[in-house]
């Protein structure tokens, strides 16, 4: 969860999406500015960390990549618990991968309500000519669930920096709102994922996440 020790905000972000939509490439591009220029490094870190400065605030993003573990549906709650933000990645050339994103959104909203900031990323926009998920559909869905929608390309490094910046901003906002209205309410309940009453009233965008 987010804390503000030493004036640094720590946010946990989870990357979700079907296999081979480019989650790892996206993350590597952001954290190390690498794509496919593969080198044997110690990038095995489960959490990749990125420090940024925003409005004079120091933010540490711990980004949890679920790549390689897509088959283990039952692990879902373990991946995303205590996350402040989620990036739901689909491949714009694969309609099925967008369906998977919709399912993740439903599950996240159900489990974490409006506590979590959602960003939907249409990756591989460099393959625009093969686009299989219409922009209108992606955007109207994102809007209906209170998520932001961005197009990205890990290959040509497009839209990624911006996506993470917006995510960080939204998480910071949420945190600042939250610390005003909600003292430590969710801290003791991490195991039970108890739905405390407060979060529901904080946002209205959640209402439209129809199942």
């Amino acid at each position: 969860m987010s804390t503000a020790r030493n004036g640094t905000h720590n946010f946990k972000v989870v990357l979700l999406g079907e296999g081979s939509v480019g989650k790892t490439s996206l993350l590597l591009r952001y954290v190390e500015d690498k794509f496919n220029e593969r080198h044997t490094s110690t990038l095995q870190a489960t959490f990749l960390n990125k420090k940024i400065n925003l409005n004079d605030k120091r933010i540490n993003l711990a980004i949890w990549d679920t790549a390689g573990q897509e088959k283990f549906h039952a692990l879902g709650p373990i991946y995303y618990r205590n996350s402040n933000g989620a990036i739901l990645v689909y491949d714009i050339t694969e309609a099925d991968s967008f369906v998977k994103v919709k399912n993740w959104v439903k599950e996240l909203r159900r489990m974490l309500g409006s506590d979590i900031v959602l960003i939907i990323a249409g990756n591989k926009i460099d393959l625009e000519h093969e686009q299989a998920v219409p922009t209108e559909e992606a955007e109207s869905f994102s809007k209906s669930v209170g998520a932001q929608h961005y197009y990205t390309s890990a290959k040509v490094n497009y839209g990624i920096e911006e996506l993470f910046l917006v995510l960080a901003q939204l998480m910071l906002q949420k945190f600042e709102q939250g610390s005003q209205t909600n003292h430590e309410a969710s801290r003791a309940s991490q195991v039970l994922i108890v739905d405390d009453d407060e979060p529901a009233h904080r946002s209205c965008c959640f209402n439209s996440s129809r199942m």
Binding site: R38, L43, A67, Q69
Partner: peptide, 11 residues
């Protein structure tokens, strides 16, 4: 599985 994914992705 995760380790294999990264071993494959990183080289």
């Amino acid at each position: 599985c995760r380790d294999l994914h990264f071993a494959h992705q990183s080289a």
